[in-house]
């Protein structure tokens, strides 16, 4: 949500400049973000909204071109079509990865061409490449996760520590990721941040937990995340209560005392009734 504040401001600016060009076309608001999950895995996400009925709503089915721009040239990384939520995701093709590995900064542009419904619009995003490493350390029975981030110096060597950037430590849970460690974890002068892993966090039945370390929505670095798996969780013992014999179980799992009681009562009374029926037929035979 908060990344849209600057965009909407920019959109307002654009609106004033275009005021004299009178046309009925809608104006789109474009959001652009970058995510790196590994050296080979980088993706761009665009999000397009437009003002309808006095509020911004996602626009579906728009095609946008995503470009990597240099001082002089502009290369098309690929096209994306927005979905129902107005989002489109592009995995950057591997053909560009080796080229990007040479660079220390990328200038991405999302471009919407002028079409029947919308005026032309573009959005650029400047990302400085950073490299995230995560170490899982056990020291004095403390479980620690250490993130270290480096970036390229002017010579292109990955040596410079990245400092003063917030780094998030998360564990995978159903539906969402749970933050662990302190509230804010900033990279120190050495480009490092360390948190203590909680010792009471449930893992799966073996104690496995997926950890995600992440730089999130940085104006400079975009999103960088690295996932790992640790066996530091408390193994979860799943207690399937539905197989127990309780009053709320399925009919087949009725408590034994209840089954015995009810069935013996039924057997007793219906047994007596059966006996009486038999005796009634005895009456029939005892007529002489």
């Amino acid at each position: 949500m908060k990344i849209f504040v600057p965009y909407s401001l920019a959109g307002l600016l654009l609106l004033t400049t275009c005021l004299n060009s009178v046309q009925a076309k809608e104006k789109a608001k474009i959001g652009l973000s970058y995510l790196k999950t590994g050296a080979e895995q980088r993706q761009l996400t665009v999000e397009v909204k437009s003002r309808m009925d006095n509020r911004y709503q996602p626009v579906e089915g728009l095609t946008l071109g995503l470009y990597l721009e240099n001082d002089s040239e502009s290369e098309l990384l690929g096209n994306v079509v927005t979905d129902a939520k107005g989002k489109g995701i592009l995995m950057i093709p591997s053909s560009f990865i080796s080229k990007m590995n040479e660079m220390s900064e990328f200038n991405f542009v999302a471009r919407l061409e002028d079409n029947d419904g919308y005026t032309a619009k573009e959005k650029d995003l400047l990302i400085r490449e950073a490299f995230l490493d995560v170490d899982y350390i056990i020291r004095d029975s403390l479980k620690l996760i250490q993130a270290s981030v480096k970036e390229k110096d002017s010579l292109g060597n990955t040596v410079l520590p990245t400092v003063d950037v917030e780094i998030k430590f998360l564990v995978e849970r159903p539906f969402s990721r749970l933050p662990i460690g302190g509230k804010y974890n900033m990279l120190n002068k050495e480009g490092k941040a360390t948190i203590e892993f909680p010792d009471d966090l449930p893992g799966d039945s073996m104690g496995h937990i997926s950890v995600v370390v992440k730089i999130e929505d940085s104006d400079v670095y975009g999103n960088i995340e690295k996932t790992g798996d640790v066996i530091w969780g408390v193994p979860t013992v799943f207690d399937d209560a539905t197989i127990k014999r309780t009053l709320w179980s399925a009919g087949a799992n009725a408590p034994y005392p209840l089954l015995v009681l009810v069935n013996s009562l039924i057997a007793a009374v219906w047994g007596i009734m059966l006996f009486i029926l038999i005796r009634i037929f005895h009456i029939k035979k005892a007529d002489n």
């Binding site: 006996f275 009486i276 005796r279 009634i280 009456i283 029939k284 035979k285 007529d287």
Partner: peptide
């Protein structure tokens, strides 16, 4: 049920009506 009021029938009837 072929009731004729024989002593045997009366005995059975008394038995089942008591049980019931």
């Amino acid at each position: 049920m072929n009731w004729k009021g024989t002593p045997k029938q009366n005995a059975i009837l008394l038995q089942i009506s008591t049980i019931l």
